[in-house]
Design a protein around this nucleic acid. Structure first.
Lengths: 168, 168
DNA sequence: CAAGGATTGTTATAGAGTAACATACTTGGT
DNA sequence: ACCAAGTATGTTACTCTATAACAATCCTTG
């Protein structure tokens, strides 16, 4: 327990959002792809907090933000774009999506997902990626992508549980 | 590339099935849980090959095997039981289920999933589990379970691709 | 054999994702 | 400025995955 990820502590989350939006705009510009109003809006909604959001939740958020009704393809197409550009990741175990904190560099996603508060933190652990690749290679397998999802309890929730334990 | 998993080579698959069924029966007996006819049938269907099967595919197989119609809850309940007992695993990335080759020992599931032939092989790599746990621990996270799904091309399909490459 | 729990059947519905086609918006060439 | 082609979005309908709720049936075990 050395460098606790930001998501686990109180922090000015508007910075997270702003940073994500700024780098998304830069990234899309430099790649010559269009970060349209809709895509930007979806990305911003996803970044509202550090918890993965389902496509249908996003759909409702979009709908309530704009009076008009929003159908599934609208949000799925935006998500497809954001996934392609590496701006968001999909968490298979939850059928949900979360913003990527480092979209500029291609990487495999490793997540710590808290059972209690739903917060999902992306690990940036290159050694793990290499361990996984070498494990697969030992079996003669050619790796293209991989996904690692770790379920458990985050440090913030562990702390709360301790306090409650003492109080009761 | 040392010990190629069995699933990648030609093998007498009836042995795989029989082994799985025998150990499932032993396991359930020793645990005092009931491996009913339905559950046994679902497990046997799952073991038809080394490819993950979706719940609805299993449903159709059940239906066509028994004239009567089979509804989703029937197969999902059997799958829930088999999952609880560790007799099958769920592959989140595919919404599919596959038999566990070593149900007697509790473990985290690591899969190599071939994009070309769909074969999914379970790795038995304790070191990887420990690496993942220590990575999570560094972030102050208490691990309960994890799932690792590696996508790519299996050695059998890599071989075929090479042959085709030469031929054309 | 009766009572209680576990298992399965049945109907309906929720949740996640996509196909197909219509409409609108950009953009580059003339 | 205008048109054509490509890109993006709207709309409708549908498929696939999974579960809720309740009824009927099947074990046990006293």
């Amino acid at each position: 327990m050395e460098k606790t990820p930001l998501a686990y502590s109180h922090h000015n989350h508007s910075h997270c959002i702003k940073d994500a939006m700024v780098s998304a705009r830069h990234l899309c510009e430099s790649r010559g792809v269009r970060l349209t109003a809709l895509r930007e809006q979806v990305l911003e909604l996803i970044w509202q907090n550090h918890k993965p959001l389902g496509a249908y939740t996003l759909m409702e958020m979009l709908a309530s933000a704009s009076t008009r009704r929003v159908a599934p393809p609208t949000v799925y197409r935006a998500l497809d774009f954001l996934l392609e550009q590496g701006l968001v990741h999909r968490i298979n175990g939850l059928n949900a999506f979360i913003g990527c904190p480092s979209p500029e560099k291609k990487h495999q996603s490793h997540f710590l997902i808290c059972r209690l508060c739903d917060t999902a933190v992306e690990l940036d652990n290159n050694k793990l990626t290499q361990d996984i690749q070498s494990s697969a290679k030992d079996a003669g397998f050619v790796v293209e992508t991989h996904s690692l999802e770790v379920m458990g309890v985050c440090p913030a929730c562990t702390g709360k549980a301790h306090k409650e334990g003492r109080a009761s």
